[in-house]
């Protein structure tokens, strides 16, 4: 598939394949209304009900082609296969901390790559307005930071193991409670 499969040619000024970041994600992109895409669409087709759609779909004009989508899918496929393979690593390479540690690292890296491939291309995050990117990334960062801190506060920085408290007595397990209702 080539780039002309999309209707990009219609917009003339934009080259869909080249550095989409620059055209939509640059400084002025946040205040998207003045972007040239909108102007051109409105100017080219003043009479259509593309009034509804013109600017709304502005983001897609730089979107990948079908072929690119398939490429990304195969990359994702391969990455997932690699992920699944880590499950068998211990049987292939023998058990051991090193294997496990490498496996976990690889898994986390692949997870992040897959995450951003899907978000960036399938969800058009790379090509869309900077605002949605920031909204979404902000949510992700808040989620990651607060839950990481909360989990560490619960499991790592606890008092059970406080240096001065050499040998804390074993916890008194709670008494089991009677069957409710």
């Amino acid at each position: 598939m080539n780039e002309n499969d999309t209707d990009a040619g219609h917009f003339g000024k934009e080259d869909p394949g080249s550095e989409p970041e620059k055209s939509s994600g640059g400084e002025s992109a946040v205040a998207a209304p003045p972007s040239p895409v909108v102007a051109s669409s409105a100017g080219d087709d003043p009479d259509v009900d593309g009034r509804h759609m013109g600017h709304l779909d502005a983001g897609h004009t730089h979107g990948p082609t079908d072929g690119q989508y398939f490429t990304i899918f195969w990359v994702l496929f391969a990455l997932t296969a690699l992920e699944v393979s880590t499950y068998f690593w211990e049987s292939w390479f023998g058990e051991g901390d090193a294997v496990r540690r490498v496996g976990v690292t690889v898994l986390l890296i692949i997870m992040v790559i897959k995450f951003f491939l899907i978000a960036g291309f399938f969800m058009h995050l790379r090509f869309d307005s900077a605002l949605v990117r920031r909204v979404f990334i902000f949510g992700l960062i808040v989620a990651m930071v607060i839950y990481t801190v909360a989990m560490s506060a619960m499991n790592i920085w606890t008092d059970n193991g406080n240096p001065w408290f050499d040998d804390p007595p074993p916890p008194i397990t709670t008494t089991t409670v009677p069957e409710a209702n």
């Binding site: 008092d159 059970n160 001065w164 408290f165 804390p168 916890p171 709670t174």
Partner: peptide
């Protein structure tokens, strides 16, 4: 209050 601040007694944990 006259001896120290408060410390929660949480089931399943031991607090110093």
């Amino acid at each position: 209050p006259a001896l120290n601040g408060k410390m929660d007694a949480v089931p399943g944990r031991t607090h110093p």
